[in-house]
Design a protein around this nucleic acid. Sequence first.
DNA 1: TATGAATGAGGCTTCATTCAT
DNA 2: AATGAATGAAGCCTCATTCAT
Lengths: 214, 214, 214, 214
Amino acid sequence: MSDLQKASQKAQEFRRREEEILQKAQELFIEHGEDKVTVEMIADGVGIGKGTIYKHFETKDEIYLRLMLRYEDQLGEVFDQLEEGGDKDRTRLAKEYFGFRMKNPEKYALFDRLEHKLTNNNSCPELVEKLHQTRASNLDRLVKIIEARIAEGKLEDVPPRYHILAAWALVHGAVALYHSKFYSEFIDDQDDFFNFLIEIGIRMGNRRPRRQED
Amino acid sequence: MSDLQKASQKAQEFRRREEEILQKAQELFIEHGEDKVTVEMIADGVGIGKGTIYKHFETKDEIYLRLMLRYEDQLGEVFDQLEEGGDKDRTRLAKEYFGFRMKNPEKYALFDRLEHKLTNNNSCPELVEKLHQTRASNLDRLVKIIEARIAEGKLEDVPPRYHILAAWALVHGAVALYHSKFYSEFIDDQDDFFNFLIEIGIRMGNRRPRRQED
Amino acid sequence: MSDLQKASQKAQEFRRREEEILQKAQELFIEHGEDKVTVEMIADGVGIGKGTIYKHFETKDEIYLRLMLRYEDQLGEVFDQLEEGGDKDRTRLAKEYFGFRMKNPEKYALFDRLEHKLTNNNSCPELVEKLHQTRASNLDRLVKIIEARIAEGKLEDVPPRYHILAAWALVHGAVALYHSKFYSEFIDDQDDFFNFLIEIGIRMGNRRPRRQED
Amino acid sequence: MSDLQKASQKAQEFRRREEEILQKAQELFIEHGEDKVTVEMIADGVGIGKGTIYKHFETKDEIYLRLMLRYEDQLGEVFDQLEEGGDKDRTRLAKEYFGFRMKNPEKYALFDRLEHKLTNNNSCPELVEKLHQTRASNLDRLVKIIEARIAEGKLEDVPPRYHILAAWALVHGAVALYHSKFYSEFIDDQDDFFNFLIEIGIRMGNRRPRRQED
DNA sequence: TATGAATGAGGCTTCATTCAT
DNA sequence: AATGAATGAAGCCTCATTCAT
């Protein structure tokens, strides 16, 4: 009994440490850029030895990937909440979706860079596979939500993924804007602008009202 | 006289070489990722010695920046054409804008990464300054175009930069989509989808028609 | 009483484990090369924890040495059998001697490498000392056997160790041949060749018959 | 002209340095064991920077291989001399052969270890290929020499490679003896013993005189 | 001006060994 | 006694940059 407890406690401890490493790594990657962050810096940040990192992750690349998986999982939780919420108002979806990513654009930008980095290398193919599965699953759930809206006649009747990806694209771009030193300086009133963007996001897939000029 | 000619010829030669270096660097950066491309690879690609590169650019970072400047200049040329064209149809703008970036999404993604890299370092502040000026100028011209459309009542009356940045964001996102291995596999009929996106892009800033539900 | 039994049982258990470790280590060393085998691999192979290994052996070097001692002891057993057998036929010695080493040339090569490794370091001097004593004793017994043969006039009358070491050398070389990827490919009919070698081995120390050409 | 000279001078300089590196590496490998010699030690030994080594050799393994090739080439030169010498006396071959390897048994032992190391890894397959070709060529030449001796009736009529490999084995073993701390201490009068060995080597492939007991 | 050999700081990773449980 | 997480010294290798020719 005590042995089992001990074992599970140790395992828990181990996981906590893993989470600590990932968290600190993410912070450092965002702050300094992943290329300037050494494994040693992460270890120091967590207050452990360099070698310990390698008990948890085989390579630095694996840290990258695990971070992405973590992010995708968190996204999945957003969807969970959306599904629970029933089909309240139609703005909910977009807002949540926007929100999740725009809440921390630098983080989002990080994952963008990591995606490219890992696509270029061919490291950890199994984890990449898993990542893609998680994504596919997240998308699937989203597709269901969209299909319902289309059935209600509230969204234009195109393949559901079109709506999703268009929203994805807009969010992605908005985040990039937000994150770009140059362009963000160009916007005086960020809140106002982002409301404008959200408006667009919400409207953009709506079933088009008949208009004279059509 | 002959000396002058020689000198100017040499100067020209020097510039051509510089252009060659930049071009080859860009190709290699896109193909392998800028982190995997060494200065030596670029030199070999151009067929010159490594040291020669450093006669043209003080650091590798400067190459990055010069590439970005070059890109921004090319974007300026697109605007030149737009202005020449007068105010033909309103779709023209969006299409050109989309087109320029989506023509080569991998290239666009490269400049995205470079932007981040250079924002993080603080190298070549003068060149960064110059880059921002070029951009500001490009934006200014775009603002003018948009203002005209608003005056015509064809675009919603918000600060012109809102329209611009919204478009920028959508394009940016679309490019990222296009470039993402995972998401692009998710789209069956790319052309169809991108038409959908362009539609959105065009519509997105339109003055909103009065509708019952508003 | 029951305590004593328990204690002795434990002690036995401990020895068995030690033997297990040595055996698995040897297998792994032969298969992958001792430098590629980590202490952890050995532990995993035996199904115990890494720390446990260090209850049995102070360092990895000690494992090396203990393996060599073990090997030398096994060689001693061969001599035991030879002595028991009386002086049957004179080919017996060489054959056994050849046989013991050539039975498993990869193993023999391993001990060769270990010898060098341990000679270079100065680790475990006491164990090295013990190893040398065992060897000396083995040699001594062999010397006796040879002396008898010389007395019988069957072997040339040189210091007995000459015969031994010459045989050792030939065997050593034969094993190396056998084990060398390149040279062993060079031999079509291995059995035939090794018979040739054994012939030589047997003949090589024979008292030289008077011949015309000498 | 001056350019060509310069270029060739540089190239020569480059080669000399390569030779220096190899030579120093070999010395250090013999002295401390190749596993204890770091690339930096070699660089320091030659008086150059660590990075420079990697302009000459892609990996440490390549240094190993290049050393082996070098050794095999030197062996080839011994054969050159043998061939030039015509077929003087039959002892010549064995003596030269013995001599080359026994002149520096520690060096020979080094190459033995390297062979194993490189067989285990799969690095530099092209160089390994080249090494084997050189060896094959060396062996070929040796085969010719042996064939002549057999035709003269001076060596037993078995496939020539048998003679070669038997000699190789004896030499190999003798060298190992010489090099082994333990066994070499066991021999009082080394010269006497090695004469004994050489005798054996010379006799060992001789056509067997008919004897009564056969 | 063009070159490319030389440099060495710095990154990633390995693994024998320790030690608290 | 057994464990295995933690450690950190140490090794290999990369590559932007320098500089003598």
